[in-house]
């Protein structure tokens, strides 16, 4: 565990907490894409298939459980919770997310470490995670105004993979550890997708103004 990896995990964890706080405190999931949340639930469920077979550390297992359970809880709040499901901006959340799932399945079948059940699912989860934010970014762009907590949620979620890239660079030089090119490439794509959002986030932060995305 190095400082970049820890920073990555903490920003990831923080993004989830901010999202839960937003839904709980405002009793609203407006501005949040259910499509993106469903994709994340799928990402964690397919990546952490090793939860009960390979023990790495208590930290690792706890974080896996947190990410699986929080993503499933958020999907539940948006689909079924009597108070919050009505606040979901269904009409703005029209991204065809099954296309992302389909493309990720095809990529995982073509490019993986080994052709085993778990490795193919692992690669699938990496590809899907890289693009899972797209429905959320499209929803924000459509609604224009972004509330503070939603803006912070997306910001921390973007920062997380950027820290992971620094972590891979650090590990490459210190441990002779190399991440497979699959995670490198997907991680870069994932972080690049946030470039536009980061830009407007910093501009609004610098001007102490409300975050607004251009139409």
């Amino acid at each position: 565990m190095n400082i970049f990896r820890l920073a990555g995990d903490m920003t990831h964890l923080f993004s989830v907490l901010v999202l839960l706080l937003k839904i709980y405190a405002t009793k609203s999931c407006s501005g949040i894409s259910l499509k993106t949340q469903e994709l994340y639930a799928l990402v964690f469920l397919t990546r952490y298939l090793d939860l009960f077979t390979d023990f790495i550390s208590v930290y690792n297992s706890v974080m896996k459980v947190v990410f699986i359970s929080s993503s499933v809880a958020i999907v539940w709040c948006m689909r079924y919770h009597p108070l919050t499901r009505r606040t979901y901006d269904k009409d703005l959340d029209t991204f065809r997310h099954y296309i992302l799932v389909g493309v990720s399945i095809i990529l995982a079948l073509l490019f993986h470490d080994r052709f085993t059940f778990r490795e193919v699912f692992w690669a699938f989860s990496i590809y899907l995670e890289a693009v899972a934010i797209l429905p959320q970014l499209v929803l924000l762009q459509r609604s224009g105004n972004v509330d503070n907590l939603t803006g912070q949620y997306v910001f921390f979620l973007g920062a997380y993979r950027a820290f992971y890239i620094l972590n891979w660079i650090y590990r490459y030089f210190t441990e002779n550890h190399y991440s497979r090119w699959i995670s490198w490439l997907a991680g870069f794509v994932q972080t690049a997708l946030y470039a536009d959002f980061f830009y407007y986030y910093f501009v609004s932060w610098k001007n102490n103004a409300k975050l607004q995305l251009p139409a």
Binding site: R5, D50, I56, N167, S179, R180
Partner: peptide, 10 residues
């Protein structure tokens, strides 16, 4: 293959 993959990461 040589080297480890990233399965110790999240």
């Amino acid at each position: 293959y040589s080297g480890t993959t990233t399965k110790d990461e999240l």
